[in-house]
Nucleic acid binder design. Sequence first.
RNA 1: GCGGGCGUAGCUCAGUUGGUUAGAGCGCCAGAUUGUGGAUCUGGAUGUCGUGGGUUCAAGUCCCAUCGCUCGCCCCA
Length: 414
Amino acid sequence: MSSLQPVRGTHDLLPEEMRRHRRVIDVARAIAERYGYHEVETPIFEFSEVFQRTLGDTSDIVTKEMYSFTDRGGERLTLRPEATAGIARALISGGLTQLLPLKFFCHGPMFRYERPQKGRLRQFHQIDIELLGVPGPEGDVEVIACGYAILTALGFADRITLELNTLGDGESRRAYRTALVEFFKAHEDRLSADSRERLERNPLRILDSKDEGDRRIVADAPLFGDFLNEASRSFFATVTGGLDALAIPYKLSPRLVRGLDYYCHTAFEFTTETLGAQGTVMGGGRYDGLVETMGGPATAGIGWAAGIERLAMMLDDPPPPRRPIAVVPVGEAAARPALKLAERLRGAGFAIELGYGGNLGKRMKRANRLNAAAALILGEDEIARGGVTLRDLDSGAQEQVALGALEERLAPYR
RNA sequence: GCGGGCGUAGCUCAGUUGGUUAGAGCGCCAGAUUGUGGAUCUGGAUGUCGUGGGUUCAAGUCCCAUCGCUCGCCCCA
């Protein structure tokens, strides 16, 4: 083992892994475009303030997971732990609030200082869509439908579950939160240490505790449903109605929550059993208060993020690399003509591999290893005839082709 | 931040109660085949046994520390 290690929790994306990522990204982008989302990219670091304000000072991400540093100018900067804050910032600083509604797709690296495990890295990648300026439930339906379409196109439809919940509007949520805190305070001495902590920071999370004792207490906790006001109820009914109309299956999960104040109404996660402990493959929800929290005008927003690594792991067979055509010169005299031929064919759109030395046998061996579909052998005989020998490397069949007819003859190998 | 498992060749791994030159398969390189790849055969190279310390006549093997990987908790994509 070399002492030269990649930084903990980071990974090199070598060609095979990169192809998996690219597959996920390409499918997601193509489908997001069908829904009218436009690709954008924001910087991978922002002023720390951007994330502190949007994520809240008590969230895990802000308290222990941010990669923050001071630059040479003395600015406090942070490597983005998620995409939404940067996009919201861009919306405000670019004056885009004039153009609402806006629909963005983006993908790229995110950074969180966490202990790595399966499906969890310190530098990881997400695809992400955000729908801004649509306050009505039709936005929620569209965003979920788009995510579902992407997961389906990737072939995961039968391995994922859409878990769905509503947090209601601000009024409903505040009322519920108050009731919940009151209830848990009464049982505080019996709660687990983790949950006592959560009682301060994020009481809704206690509902999702894995601790046995907590679960017994939770069983008698007040139900969110009883605190939803009429407006929240009908909002959610429109969302589920839309999903029903689109035949998108979902499971209501009352325990699915979000901690921060600006989250409201729809919260959802696509989960899978196939990835171990990190079962969430795509998660999102409505965040109507976020842009305002950052200092912009009140702007509705809803979106999701999905982990590319997790999706890439679920891909059944890695997309194969493109099969090249090998140009194989024989003898010194053929080197120059082969170089020119290779360039000409590349110009015509073929993937050409021109070996880097060795005799015919060596070059053929290398062509085979690269899974080349065909070899074009170019030696004295061929040059004299003004053609090349075309060998199909799957069948072994070989024929002479005149130089002028090459592009046409090679069409099947494109 | 907390807990469990694991570090031997490029990869996957074997290595007996501590015992002398550390092995296999795959891959790689060369040759059989200097104008023909895949299959076969023959030969070849490659290890700070993760790192540091300790115990011992002797450590890949036992002990301690450390680093890394991995799985889980927390949280999340």
